[in-house]
Simulated assay, not measured.
Amino acid sequence: MPLYWHLLKVVPSLQIVVHRIVWSALLVSAWLLWKQGRGWLQAALARPRAAWMLALSGLLIAFNWGLYIWAVNAGHVVESSLGYFINPLISVVLGVAFLHERLNRVQWLSVALATLGVAWLTWQLGQPPWIAIGLALSFGLYGLIRKLVAIDAVSGLGVESVYLFLPALAVLLWGETHGSGGFLSGGWGVGIDVLLVIAGALTALPLIGFAFAVRRVPLSVVGLMQYIAPTLQFLLGVLFFNEAFDHDRAVGFGFIWVALAIFASDGLWRSRRQAALATT
């Protein structure tokens, strides 16, 4: 994803976001129309609390996309990866705060270590890592709302896309008529126009694939795989984009990586133990 948005760096971040929303909405709506028929939207909104909660989750995911795209093209890939590293722990804290879930001692230790890592980075940098915190909180709250709404992933994304479509289209058209756009006018080039359209598929297809895969892959495996993306982002930030990663940042990241290793190991051990008990 950072490499893809880097290819679009000549396009203003807001324009990338609205293109991403528009083309994603068209793709997901077409998919749902094909799979579920013309009544898919009415059926989705008929679920309890779905209408306003999916409107809120749509705003959160749009904010998350916008912040991430801006951060990548502004040279903050490493800090963006930090946001997705701490996101699982933010989700755990939100579960405790809003869903009355309970944590064991090992999980609390993980949360404490991650908090120390963020505190260390705040002290060394002179300010909190706002990009990372913004990404983690927006995606964590998004996940919390989607957990509370009894709707499958693809239909939920479809409703969110419908809510965001008209505002995004309005911003896109305004930009095209006021000099900040260049789509199909030669301003950015044919290659950039194609990449903007494909951005919709790049948004929707992984989420659709996840919706199917999560039913077939053990959750313990899914939990571990969620760290692959931020790891790749971090490596790209350091090795490809040549962003700074000094000793002070290494200490802060180290606290968070240890916290994640403890958290993931505990989850894997518990999953295997439950599977063994079920077999017995």
Results as ranks from 00 to 15, higher is better:
3 L>V: 15
4 Y>S: 10
5 W>Q: 12
5 W>T: 12
6 H>R: 15
6 H>W: 14
6 H>F: 15
9 K>N: 14
10 V>A: 15
12 P>W: 00
15 Q>T: 04
16 I>C: 10
17 V>N: 02
19 H>R: 07
25 A>H: 05
28 V>K: 11
32 L>Q: 12
32 L>N: 11
34 W>F: 13
35 K>H: 12
38 R>Q: 15
40 W>F: 01
41 L>P: 08
42 Q>I: 14
43 A>F: 03
44 A>N: 06
45 L>F: 00
46 A>I: 09
47 R>H: 03
49 R>M: 12
51 A>Y: 01
53 M>F: 05
54 L>I: 04
55 A>C: 05
57 S>M: 00
62 A>W: 03
63 F>K: 09
67 L>Q: 05
67 L>K: 03
84 Y>N: 07
85 F>E: 10
87 N>I: 14
88 P>Q: 01
88 P>K: 00
88 P>G: 04
89 L>P: 04
92 V>L: 03
95 G>D: 07
95 G>A: 04
96 V>D: 11
97 A>G: 12
99 L>I: 00
99 L>F: 00
101 E>F: 00
102 R>G: 02
104 N>E: 09
106 V>M: 13
110 S>N: 03
111 V>Y: 00
112 A>V: 05
120 W>T: 04
120 W>G: 06
122 T>C: 04
123 W>G: 06
124 Q>R: 04
125 L>S: 13
127 Q>E: 11
127 Q>T: 13
131 I>R: 01
131 I>F: 01
132 A>C: 08
132 A>K: 05
133 I>N: 14
139 F>I: 14
139 F>S: 11
142 Y>H: 06
151 I>Y: 00
155 S>C: 05
156 G>H: 01
159 V>N: 01
160 E>P: 01
161 S>I: 02
162 V>F: 00
163 Y>T: 08
164 L>N: 09
165 F>I: 02
167 P>W: 05
168 A>G: 07
169 L>M: 08
171 V>A: 12
172 L>D: 15
173 L>R: 11
173 L>Y: 08
179 G>Q: 06
179 G>D: 07
180 S>E: 10
181 G>M: 02
181 G>S: 07
185 S>L: 09
188 W>R: 09
190 V>K: 15
196 L>S: 08
196 L>K: 09
197 V>G: 02
200 G>A: 03
202 L>D: 09
205 L>K: 14
206 P>N: 03
207 L>G: 06
208 I>T: 06
212 F>M: 08
212 F>K: 10
212 F>G: 09
213 A>C: 03
215 R>P: 14
215 R>I: 07
215 R>Y: 01
218 P>H: 02
218 P>Q: 06
220 S>N: 13
225 M>W: 04
226 Q>I: 06
226 Q>T: 09
230 P>A: 12
230 P>K: 15
232 L>N: 13
232 L>H: 12
235 L>I: 14
235 L>M: 09
238 V>I: 10
241 F>L: 10
244 A>E: 14
247 H>G: 15
249 R>A: 13
249 R>F: 08
251 V>C: 07
253 F>Y: 06
253 F>W: 03
256 I>C: 05
257 W>N: 13
262 I>M: 11
264 A>V: 13
267 G>W: 00
269 W>M: 15
270 R>W: 02
278 A>Q: 14
278 A>R: 14
